[in-house]
Amino acid sequence: MRLLFRQSVSLLLIMTLLTGVLYPLLCTGLAQALFPRQADGSLIIRHGQIVGSRLIGQSFTSPAYFWGRPSATSPGPYNADASSGSNLGPTNPALRRAVERRIAALRAADPDNTASIPVDLVTASGSGLDPDISPAAAEYQLSRVAESRHLAPAIVQRMITASTRGRTFGVLGERRVNVLELNLRLDGLWPKH
């Protein structure tokens, strides 16, 4: 018993050094050397200022910007320090009320648009930080954004296309539009190639 205890203590110590110190340090060293931008959070820097991460969504409510997914983080939406979904059950009346409220807000910002709304634009994401919307959700908002910016719809359409990613290898995941990238393009803050 005493022998087993002694062996336990020393093995735990060595394993802690191996898996808790050496392994993460090795990962950090290699990741920082090979993929420094990704390992540091895919940050977007404009005019010397960090404006966000390409991977973390931001809250947009102005009609001149594309809106992202509804976010259930607290105390406010897109609080990156407190990722969370709504965890509303499918039959919870509060879910239906929340969806109704979001429909009303979208309609109020764009009264002429009577198309039915893509589901991802009125349901909260899993992380509360979803950086993407579906291409359908971008199409739905195109006329509103173009109008409030006095831009030709074709120009906005080109920006949507440029911010769209397809399925990986044509199979994995879903087609999606990065909202922050798209809005930076609208503001002329995305570098042109």
């Binding site: 997914r69 979904g85 709504s86 965890n87 509303l88 499918p90 039959t91 879910l95 239906r96 969806v99 109704e100 429909i103 039915s116 709304i117 893509p118 589901v119 991802d120 009125v122 349901t123 909260a124 994401s125 899993g126 992380s127 979803d130 993407d132 919307i133 579906s134 291409p135 359908a136 959700a137 199409e139 995941g173 879903e174 087609r175 999606r176």
Partner: peptide
Amino acid sequence: NPALHGLAVNQQAGPLQAGGNMEGKEVRFG
């Protein structure tokens, strides 16, 4: 989600969206 029937919400899958029950899901995963 049948609870959203009757609202102006499109849950149909199509070339431009995954559709379905998207509450609590991420767009990139659908």
